[in-house]
Design a protein around this nucleic acid. Structure first.
Length: 445
RNA sequence: GUGAGUGUAGCUCAAGGGCAGAGCACUGGUCUGUGGCUCCAGGGGUUGGGGGUUCGAAACCCCUCACUCACCCCA
């Protein structure tokens, strides 16, 4: 109804008042990154990717959308992500797609499709980019958010699990992130988990009356998820529930111990949380979360684990895999708090060229082009002839130097070069043309 | 999907039924070709939108929209 009103305003005969125009804003939960945020965000992404590159990961470029089936098959039909959070659409051929809600499924699909996995060896692949989930936005939670992730595929060992944790820990240390705790768990393998599951279901069945609605439903559909229910009334029951750690088979127990031993030897602090259950169904054995008390209630900034059956489920080799994803917006929040957000420097470009008067304009235009050709970031200031405004514009440009050219300078074949940070000013000859750029390059240091 | 809080100038916020304001930013001057500091002046608002109560509404009531936070979920 409101819409119609506005449209009437626009299309009605007569002169519509500007306020009748319907403002189009960014969709809910979608954030623009305006300067200097975008540069900072990219610097943080680069820093993260550099950690992955140094750890032997090769980056893969992945599509933004995939067949819906890829996610239902990997993440699990009973998960919130698949049940109610995916952005779905049909293309003109009637195929059903989803904007990717996470990266692991895509990366594994690509790795299988291009035969990147050699089951007897270890393959390390990484990715980064936007992910999409239709959730109610909140501090640290967006509908389009960004993850950097890494996956190890093939003949992997518990030590590879440890390495993943060490990499995230390294990022955490290099950014001096505040208040982070690493929680780990082992969810068992295809042999021991069903035994635990059965024990859990029969325990939960006995206490149905005291469980919340969701937990009662999940007892049948996805009993492990009951373990991280936060409803107060459920807590006493959950606390006394059987622990997965008591049900681990010999292999899983050894796996778990090896992971703990690795963390110990690397001096990485961790807390074992037997009720840590990830929201994606594909995890087996090791799962983990890096949680910070410096974020809001969305406190997990990196998480992952091992997934032994997923590659086979997606039509790949019957090999295990393990990986993690880092929430970059959450990482940015933390880095900002600790003052370690990699920031673009004070000066975002090198030079602003200010012509004083119309005869100087063509000189300025040519100087700008010459500087850019020489790799120096430069813009001209053509909107004003007043030197004071020129200086202000140069500051707004983020320029380190202002270059001033007027009648006098043209007559002498020179240009004024003033360093805006020190206030030092020199005259530089206009010929040869590369003289100016060489001066600026050396003066920058 | 549920709940709570908040919407006033470009930004951060005052005014809690009686003239819609401050700081920062912006424009001009102070200062004719040398910025940042002073001081002075100026522009900028249907107080998110719609309806109601009232002599009078930014304020009170209803509806609606948006944002924020929390539940939930997760990175």
């Amino acid at each position: 109804m409101m819409m119609e009103r506005h449209l009437n305003g626009i299309f009605s005969v007569g002169t519509p008042h500007p306020v009748d125009i319907v403002m189009i804003n960014a969709p809910r939960g979608i954030k623009d990154r305006v300067p200097p945020e975008e540069d900072q965000f990219n610097a943080l992404l680069t820093l993260t990717e550099e950690h992955l590159r140094k750890a032997g990961f090769k980056k893969v470029g992945l599509p933004i959308f995939e067949s819906v089936a890829l996610f239902t098959r990997s993440i699990g039909v009973e998960t919130d992500i698949v049940e109610k959070e995916m952005y779905l659409f049909e293309d003109k051929g009637g195929e059903r797609f989803a904007l990717r809600p996470e990266g692991t499924a895509s990366l594994l699909r690509a790795a299988i499709e291009h035969h990147l996995i050699e089951p007897a060896r270890v393959t390390r692949l990484s990715y980064s980019g936007p992910m999409f989930r239709h959730e109610r936005p909140q501090a640290g939670r967006l509908r389009q958010f960004h993850q950097a992730g890494a996956e190890i595929l093939g003949a992997i060992t518990p030590e590879d699990d440890v390495d993943l944790l060490a990499i995230i820990d390294g990022i955490s240390r290099s950014l001096r992130l505040p208040g982070t705790t690493l929680f780990i768990n082992n969810m068992g393998c295809s042999r021991c988990r069903p035994v635990f599951r059965e024990a859990l279901v029969s325990y939960l069945s006995l206490h149905q009356d005291n469980l919340c609605q969701t937990c009662r439903k999940r007892t049948g559909t996805n009993p492990l998820r009951v373990l991280d229910c936060k409803v107060p009334d459920c807590q006493p029951i959950i606390e006394k529930a059987p622990s997965i750690l008591d049900f681990l088979c010999e292999d899983s127990r050894k796996h778990h111990e090896a992971v703990c031993a690795g963390l110990n030897s690397l001096n990485i602090n961790y807390t074992i949380n037997p009720r840590l259950v990830r929201g994606l169904d594909y995890y087996t054995e090791t799962t983990f979360e890096f949680v910070s008390n410096a974020l809001g209630s969305q406190s997990t900034w990196a998480a992952g684990g091992r997934y032994d059956g997923l590659l086979a489920q997606l039509g790949g080799p019957d090999s295990p895999g393990a990986g993690f994803a880092i929430g970059l917006e959450r990482l940015a929040l933390l880095a900002a708090q600790s003052g370690t957000m990699p920031s673009s420097s004070l000066f975002t470009q090198d030079a602003s060229v200010l012509p004083l008067g119309p005869t100087a304009i063509p000189f300025a235009q040519n100087i700008v082009r010459e500087l850019r050709t020489e790799g120096i970031a430069a813009t001209g200031i053509f909107g004003t002839t007043k030197i004071k405004q020129g200086f202000k514009q140069a500051e707004r440009d983020g320029s380190r130097f202002i270059l001033i050219i007027g009648e006098d300078e043209i007559a002498r074949g020179e240009i004024v070069v003033k360093d805006l940070s020190s206030g030092e000013q020199v005259m530089i000859p206009l010929f040869p043309p590369d003289h100016l750029s060489r001066h600026i390059r050396s003066a920058k240091l």
